[in-house]
């Protein structure tokens, strides 16, 4: 269970988020500028606000990003351009990149899962956008943190690739029992992922419901407004 009650002020933007997210997938929907990414950055520790963040009874709000049980994928810039694919994943397990045999095979397994085995020696600038994000996911796999935050990491990919990535995230989440939170502005992504869906607007959590609500929205609900139905 990931629960939070946090406030954040920046210039004239005021945010106040409260929610409790169960294990499994939660998609965050909402209009641009509504505070979706801000919430994710607060959870990841890249912004600091007031309030409480708890995961499985552990307080996170005073921890540095690296001390939180969290992996986060951004829209871009998830890789070090000066390291090749293998090293970019390896650094997720050991900052020195000196791996034990066990870690080595784990890395191999992660590359297999993300279909990157043939790319281990390539540098990020030689990869396509989808490949680069898969490398980042491989790193999430080896890091093995129970919380995964995704900030529209697949929005730049073509529909088929995007679908594949979403399927991958879904199956990994269930396989390892992660708590995955993904920001997106495509309701279909949320449907593909399943789980819960959260609407964030004006810096607040407006609704948190099962994803089926998107397919059969009650007339007059907040989602119908957002979906323009």
């Amino acid at each position: 269970m990931l629960s939070f009650d946090i406030q954040y002020h920046w210039q004239d933007f005021q945010a106040d988020y409260q929610a409790q997210l169960p294990a499994g997938i939660t998609s965050i929907l909402g209009p641009s500028g509504g505070g979706k990414s801000t919430l994710l950055s607060l959870l990841g520790g890249y912004l600091s606000g007031q309030g409480i963040i708890e995961f499985s009874g552990e307080k996170l709000d005073h921890l540095a990003p690296y001390e939180r049980p969290v992996s986060m994928l951004f829209q871009s810039d998830n890789l070090f351009p000066q390291l090749n694919v293998w090293d970019n994943v390896a650094i997720g397990m050991s900052p020195t990149r000196r791996l034990t045999n066990e870690q080595n095979s784990k890395l191999k397994w992660a590359l297999e899962q993300t279909q990157l085995l043939g790319f281990a020696q390539k540098f990020p600038e030689q990869l396509s956008g989808g490949q680069a994000q898969r490398v980042a996911i491989a790193r999430v796999l080896v890091r093995d943190k129970p919380v995964l935050l995704l900030d529209e990491p697949f929005s730049a990919l073509d529909p088929r690739l995007r679908d594949e990535m979403l399927q991958l995230v879904r199956s990994l989440t269930h396989q390892f029992n992660w708590t995955t939170v993904m920001v997106t502005h495509a309701p279909n992504d949320a449907k593909t992922l399943g789980g819960k869906v959260m609407l964030v607007e004006h810096g607040q959590v407006q609704a948190l419901v099962d994803v089926q609500a998107l397919s059969t929205p009650e007339s007059g609900s907040i989602f119908t407004q957002y979906l323009g139905l």
């Binding site: 540095a64 990003p65 690296y66 986060m72 951004f74 890789l79 000066q82 997720g92 900052p95």
Partner: peptide
């Protein structure tokens, strides 16, 4: 700045960040 963001997420120490970034 994104490199520092990654470094912070991955928990690199000052020396490792120096070496890598």
């Amino acid at each position: 700045d994104s490199q520092w963001r990654l470094a912070s997420q991955l928990g690199l120490s000052r020396w490792q960040a120096f070496h890598l970034i």
